[in-house]
Design a protein around this nucleic acid. Structure first.
Lengths: 346, 346
DNA sequence: CACCACTTCTAAACCGGTTTAGTACAGGAA
DNA sequence: TTCCTGTACTAAACCGGTTTAGAAGTGGTG
């Protein structure tokens, strides 16, 4: 027996389709007794409305889209998306919306167009924003509500768009201050791509925190968030005439790879060199030495992003969100600055 | 201007809705000249069929579901899903299907029921199968086609179900043989939960490979794939009267955590102890020493799973898949067995 | 010429909901 | 009594496609 339809419920309750629809959506114009009878019949038949049909008649998809714009290689190592998705979905399912995934290897523009053209989603989440990203403009053109996930940009977005994200500044600042208080003066930064908003924002946060601590701008190496690039950055820093005594990495993966390079070169961490990461990945606490890093609540972030998107879709005013702030987790990879100027002995 | 509908195309081409539908689905009964005119009109208006409407009339959802059944804490560290999803989606989008995600913290049964009741998906992918999993039976009851992702189980599944996965045996066997050839005789295994199919299958593979190499069964510690549990397992192994000279971990995360514990205890890897992982996570190559591990092509796996599911949904016979086999990647964490019986000096 | 088969196309039903227009009936006021 | 208003409900249109039944036109055969 196929799933019962609204018609089955209607005949079972001895009323018309319309009455059932009214009763189930709590709309006036149905006598209490009739409503009760209808609900009882629906219950008895085990009827649930079909989102398919519902979506068609209300002209809404009842789903939102997330485009994974990173290449599979990078996705492979990523700890952000699973947690983020988990948060997203928990909020969405509470509101009867589904989460639709689309993976765009390169041409993400086409992916968004497909999503919009199909009318399969009511809105989308945009992650990994580039500094000069064309997607907000594209989505505005497609009239697709969007939540841009990441640190705030200066520029405003369209009326159908909203930026939402954990502020990088406090976390990175805490890391720099922590190092400064340990006596470090040459604090380098290994950033993500500076073409990406969260690559750049962490770089900026590091630079201003350094200035605020009264320290000279340390060396900066631009990497791409991958382990390989983190390792390369560390090698470059160690080749410097005056290597830094501490390195602030823009994420854990690079930090761990950097850590490994330093150790392989006989540089002891944290005795000769302090290292910090960002993300608080699960393994971060389980490498040798355990990584000092910045923890963010990605699940909460996902929930907040989903709720904001639903508000946009419904045309409701955005309610304020307060995300748990990033916090520094001090572990074994940071220690007092070496007194002997950058000698390296195992 | 809202998206054009099939009716707009019909009037533009001077034909009926039905004719347009025929023309666009390459069905006979349309004169070549008419077909051309219709396609031209559709092109000019920029029309794309609405999956919403299409799904309703063909009584298919044109989407498949994936339930992430792991708690957020574990998901956080997981490198499997992003890559797997990436593979899934690439195959699905080629066939006009969408990927719908559902996250089930605990009660995954309810998640599947929701998916089935809503009729939002035509089939589902089941991961992380438990040895005594109720989901295959549940899905059969719900008449929801399913691909069970993971190593084959002995029992057959329903007609609407199919198991598909990378065989664990060759990878684990290669790891054990590699260690045996290096002279290791006491090779321990740190497994995932033995209530999980892939936890058990890797354990079994290790046990038979040991037997095949003519070695006595080494110590076995059951863990849960998390870093914390891997660390605990390593501590337990080091406490043994006769600690193993090599440890085969069931995944990279546990292996890296175990590696770290050994080093913290002053056990040198690979001099005193060899360690292997499973997954070939990105960071595995960038810890100190780099991890010897088993690489699997998770993206290809995802593609294959998606294609098989589409076959099931369409009622086509399953086509054989050949997944690239797991292969051992030898790095620095494995070396010759120590000659002095398990002395530990830094 | 009558009949049949085949191709090409249209009209209408259908998927399963929501929503609008309109009907039936009750009670209250003039 | 008649008229009006409001409530409770039904019938039908609608969302945007697919699919079936049937109509119209064409060509071939006896």
């Amino acid at each position: 027996m196929p799933r019962p339809t609204i018609k089955d419920v209607a005949t079972a309750a001895g009323v018309s389709k319309g009455a059932v629809s009214f009763a189930l959506n709590d709309r006036p114009g149905v006598a209490p007794e009739t409503r009760r009878r209808i609900l009882e019949a629906a219950e008895r038949l085990g009827w649930t409305p079909s989102p398919r049909a519902r979506a068609l008649s209300v002209s809404r998809a009842l789903a939102v889209g997330l485009v994974l714009a990173r290449p599979a290689r990078v996705l492979r190592a990523d700890a952000f998306f699973p947690a983020f998705i988990s948060g997203l979905e928990s909020a969405l399912s509470e509101h009867g919306h589904a989460l639709l995934l689309q993976v765009a290897e390169h041409d993400d523009e086409a992916a968004y167009r497909r999503l919009a053209a199909g009318g399969r989603v009511d809105g989308v989440l945009v992650t990994d924003l580039q500094v000069d990203d064309r997607r907000p403009a594209l989505l505005e053109e497609l009239a697709l509500p969007a939540v841009i996930v990441g640190p705030h940009l200066g520029d405003g977005f369209g009326p159908q768009q909203s930026a939402l994200g954990v502020d990088d500044v406090p976390g990175v600042t805490a890391a720099v201050q922590h190092l400064a208080s340990l006596g470090h003066a040459r604090v380098a930064h290994v950033s993500g791509p500076l073409t990406m908003v969260h690559g750049r924002s962490r770089r900026d946060a590091w630079a201003s925190a350094m200035a605020a601590a009264g320290l000279p701008a340390g060396p900066l190496v631009e990497a791409d968030f991958s382990a390989e690039s983190g390792a390369a950055a560390m090698r470059a820093l160690l080749r410097l005439e005056e290597p830094p005594t501490a390195v602030v990495f823009a994420n854990d993966v690079m930090a761990m790879a950097g850590l490994s390079v330093a150790q392989a070169r006989g540089v002891s961490v944290p005795r000769d060199l302090s290292v910090t990461g960002y993300d608080d990945t699960e393994i971060a606490a389980h490498v040798q030495p355990p990584l000092t890093t910045v923890a963010i609540d990605v699940v909460a972030w996902g929930r907040a992003a989903a709720l904001r998107l639903l508000e946009l879709v419904d045309g409701r005013p955005p309610s304020p969100v307060d995300l748990p702030p990033a916090r520094l987790v001090v572990r074994g990879s940071t220690g007092p600055a070496p007194t002997t100027p950058s000698s390296s002995s195992s």
